[in-house]
Each structure stands twice: as C-alpha cells, then as structure tokens.
Design a protein around this nucleic acid. Structure first.
Lengths: 132, 132
DNA sequence: CGGTATCCGTGACGATACTG
DNA sequence: CAGTATCGTCACGGATACCG
C-alpha cells in the first residue's frame, strides 16, 4: 500500500484529485477539456443533436481533421454520443451525453467570457504594447 | 464606416462577438484562455498574490519557460499584474487583476469539473477501449 | 531570485487525396 | 456524406546554459 501516489491516497480519503500534479489523471483530463477545439465543439452541440456536416459548417474555422479528432476524443471520454444511421448517403449525428451536458455550462461560460471581455483585453493589450 | 468587419458591426449592435469565426478576435481570445497552462496558472493565483518561485513550486508540472510565457501573456491581456520589488535577490509578485478575477470562477469550474468527473470519464474510456 | 537565450525533438495542425 | 490516410510545416514545449 505504500506504493500509492499522493493523488491516489487523496482520492481514497474522499478529497478530490489534484490537477496541479502532472501524474494526476485529473491533470490529463484538464489538458483535454481546456482545449480550444473542445470548447467550440461542446458549445456548438448545446442546441441538441447535430449532423457532422452541420457541425463542420458551423465551425468553419475548424479543419475536418481536427473536428473529427475532437469528436472522437469526446466520444471516448463519454461526453458525446455518435449515432450512425445507415442510409445512402450515410448520416451521422452527434449529441451531448448527460456527462457532456454537465460540462456545457462551463464551456458556455468560457466562450461567453471571451466574447464579453474582448474589448477590455484588447485595451489591455494595446496599453501593454504601447511604445515607450 | 463601410470598412468594419461583421464582428465589429455585431458588437456595436449590442450583440456579442461570435467565437465560431476564425477571424473574430473573440476566437483568438478563446484560443488563449482555453489553454491548460492558463487554467492552471489562474487557479493557482486564486489565493492571492504569489511569488514566481511559489507558483513554480506549486505548478511543478509546468516548465519555467511555459510558466513565464503564460504569465507574460496573462499580463499583456490585463488578467495578471506583475510587481517587481528591487532587492537582492529580486522579488517578483503576480496577482490577478479585476479582469482576471472575473475569469476565476470559470477557470475554477473547469478544474473542478475535471477533478470531479475524473472517474466517470475513466470509466467511459475503459468501455470505449474495450476490445471487441 | 527571476528570468532570458538557444537548441532541438515531438506532435499539432492544415492541405490534399482517396474510400465506403 | 462522413470520414481515413498521408504528407509537410511549424510552433509548442522541454532541456540546458547564461545573465542582472
């Protein structure tokens, strides 16, 4: 039992993981969700199930590769479900799971903060970059 | 006045920026704050002003280069203030500004979510990776 | 102490072409 | 339509050394 890490012992004690530690699994999860593509994708899925092509059109700034990769990661992590409807042509829908919806308020808040405080940040940058 | 971008006109109309568009400045800001280093740094500064060495010790998983770079970005964006106290040796303190504190609840929520839902995500991954 | 400067490998990311 | 595969690039980020 002495081989347990600090994070493991902390978890068993009822306390949470500590994302500051590189070895902590919560840290890896944080790396995963604190990601620009994830924040955009989850936000886009807020309105309900969406087809791949709809998502791709909405997130015009995301390449096909990154969108697919992000959706795969989210699916693996249990945040989105992927439903394939066999037809010609094939139809694939993505939808947030219950777990995914629990993350939605946070992702929405981040996107909202960025859009809301854009002007203040821009002003701060201008001041910072101001020549001597 | 006809040279304004769609984002600028939207802002003046009272509506927010649209972070889905690559050209939108809010998108760049989102890219900046939806970052693992930023989320860790802002969270670490939640308790009040901290010295560089304290931060570095706390965020053991962050290299000196990334920590400095992240703090510089946050300073430029007006989220963090940097105070140098001339002495031997030099002392540098970092502190969240009012703008930075407005972001704190969101960053805290992200880190909290990661630590809280770690087990569920881990279970989802195991299920996803389960061989045929 | 609190950085900066430099090197350098890895992998993120976009563009393109192809498939079921 | 919804991908997968492959390639090339370039910036992220770690390691190391040096500076005020």
């Amino acid at each position: 039992m002495s081989t347990r890490t600090a994070a493991q012992r902390r978890a068993e004690a009822g306390s949470a993981y500590d994302a500051y530690l590189a070895e902590c699994p919560a840290r890896q999860l944080l790396d995963r969700i604190a990601d620009k593509w994830v924040s955009l994708a989850v936000n886009a899925l807020a309105d309900g199930p969406q087809r791949y092509s709809d998502l791709h059109r909405r997130l015009a700034s995301v390449s096909q590769k990154m969108l697919t990769q992000t959706l795969r990661h989210l699916e693996r992590d249990g945040l989105v479900s992927r439903t394939v409807t066999p037809a010609v042509p094939v139809r694939v829908d993505y939808e947030l799971t219950a777990l995914g919806r629990s993350l939605l308020p946070v992702m929405c808040a981040i996107k909202g903060w960025a859009e809301e405080h854009m002007d203040e940040v821009h002003a701060a940058r201008t001041a910072y970059d101001a020549p001597s």
